[in-house]
Amino acid sequence: MHTYEPPQVGLSSPDSQLSTRVALLDAAERLFSQNGIEGTSVREIIKAAGANLGAINYHFGTKDRLALEVFARRIEPVNRERVARLDALEAAVGPEKLKLEQILDALIRPVMESEGHDLKTCEDLMRLISRSFQESNPEVKRFVEEQFAEVVRRFDAAILRVVPSLSPGDLFWRMSFLHGALHHGLQTWLRFDQVPYAVLNPAATKPDREGLIQSLIAFTAAGMSASPARPS
C-alpha cells in the first residue's frame, strides 16, 4: 500500500507551527467532507483554521497536497488496522477456517474504534471516506484507489472463500450495502435522540458501542451469506 509522505518544511517545528498544521488539517477535513475539494477555497480553510494567508503554502505547498494529507491521516491507519486484524486471524486459524463474522469484525471494528473511541472522529471519518470516492481530482482519486486496493483484494478473497456461493459480482454490491449500513448505522447511533424513526418507535433503544458493532456484524453476515438474487 502506498503511504503518503507529507512534505518537509525544512525547519524544526515548534509547538505553534504544529498547532497551525493540525488546525489546517482539521479545518480542511471539515470543509472537504461538506463541500468537496473543488468546492472549498484556500481562503475558507485559512479562515476556519484561524491561520495566516501563507500557511497552506508553507506547511503543505498546495491545496491538493493538503487534501492528500487530510485523507491519508484518516484512511491509512484504519486500513492498516483492517489488514493487520485479518493477518492475525489468518495466522491464528488459517484462511480456510475463518468464520464470516470474524472477517466482518476485522473490516468494521477499526472504523468504529478509530482515534481512541472518539465519536465525532468516527462520524468525520465515515463522511470523509464517502466523499473520497466522489472526488474528481485525479491525484486524490488515484491516492484513494491505492489506499483501498489491498483492503478490497484481501477482504473480497476472504469472504469469497467462506461464502463460495457468492459471485464476485454479487459481492461488489453486498460490500456496497455493507458500507452503506455502516455509515447510516453510525449516523443513527450518534444522533439517536434526534432520529425520527427512533422517536416514533418506543421499542428502539440505543446500544453501547460494542452492541452496535455486533448488530452490524450480524446484519451484514446475514446479507453476505444469503442466497444470490435471481432475475425474475
Rank of each mutant, 00 (worst) to 15 (best):
E29Q: 14
D118K: 02
V195E: 12
A218E: 01
P231I: 02
V93I: 11
L160V: 07
R161E: 06
V199Y: 00
Q187S: 09
S227Y: 01
R21A: 08
R153Y: 09
L166V: 03
V78P: 03
H179I: 08
R109G: 01
A149C: 01
I103M: 00
Q34E: 10
P228W: 02
D208Y: 02
G39S: 13
S114R: 11
V195A: 08
D105V: 09
P138L: 00
F177L: 15
L200R: 15
R161P: 03
K63C: 12
S215Y: 02
Q8E: 15
I37Y: 14
Q17S: 14
M175P: 03
M112D: 12
T40C: 05
L119M: 07
A158S: 13
P196R: 08
G54W: 02
G50E: 13
Y58N: 13
N79S: 09
E90M: 09
V199M: 02
S132M: 04
R80V: 14
I45T: 09
G116K: 01
F60A: 11
L53M: 12
E29I: 01
Q8K: 13
T40R: 04
L212H: 13
V162Q: 07
D118Q: 12
R109K: 10
L200K: 13
P6K: 08
G169N: 14
A198W: 10
E38P: 08
P6V: 07
D156H: 03
A55R: 02
P95D: 09
L166S: 06
S176A: 14
T188R: 15
E5W: 01
L25H: 11
F71I: 03
A203D: 11
V162R: 10
L119G: 04
S136E: 15
W173F: 15
R82S: 06
S19G: 11
A218T: 01
D156W: 00
V93S: 11
E69D: 05
G180F: 09
V144F: 04
R80C: 08
G36M: 05
T220M: 01
S165A: 12
A51V: 12
L18Q: 14
R109V: 15
Y58V: 12
V195H: 05
C122K: 00
T40I: 12
G180A: 07
R85I: 07
D124F: 03
N35V: 08
G169Q: 14
Q147L: 05
P228S: 05
T188A: 11
N201A: 05
E38I: 08
F133K: 08
E5C: 10
P7C: 07
N35F: 14
D193T: 15
E96F: 10
L18V: 12
R109F: 07
A49M: 13
I129K: 00
Q147K: 06
D87N: 09
V152A: 08
K99R: 06
D124M: 11
I46T: 15
V9F: 02
E69I: 04
G223S: 01
E81I: 12
L31Q: 10
K63V: 06
S215N: 11
E135K: 06
A221W: 06
E123R: 03
V140C: 03
R21H: 04
V111C: 10
H183V: 11
E96N: 13
A221D: 01
V163S: 04
A222W: 02
V144Y: 00
E150L: 04
A51G: 10
P202I: 02
L216Q: 04
V111L: 11
R161T: 15
S165R: 11
D64N: 12
E101A: 05
L31M: 13
A203V: 00
E145R: 02
M112E: 10
